[in-house]
Write a protein that binds this DNA or RNA. Sequence first.
DNA 1: AGCTTGACTTTGA
DNA 2: GTCAAAGCCAAGC
Length: 109
Amino acid sequence: MEDKQLFVKQVLEVVKLIPPGRVTNFGAIARALGSAKSSRMVGWILGNAKGQEQVPAHRVVNRNGLLTGRHHFTPPTRMQELLESEGVKVVDHQVVDFKKLFWDPLENL
DNA sequence: AGCTTGACTTTGA
DNA sequence: GTCAAAGCCAAGC
């Protein structure tokens, strides 16, 4: 129970640490926390924490660089707008040069 | 209490 | 290169 909360807190912390104009994927965050298997949880956490604090969830995409969580935004196009606003080019709900813009949490650690 | 769904990843064919 | 299946944890019904 407490561990779960801690995991959530760590995820949020990492997400907040993502520099502007950069993006990351769920697996990297989960792996950075030591739980690569909980990649799905990261998504759940964001949805759970979105209403709690300001978390740049738009900087978190799936491993394919696809804005899978766009539908969870309001409106769904908000995610792409935010990314483009930060200088991240998004085409067809997919981050351009995702490999370059990819930010690894482990780097910050 | 059990089954289904979900902002995913990885491995195998 | 793509497609299919397994693994993983939690929430919703």
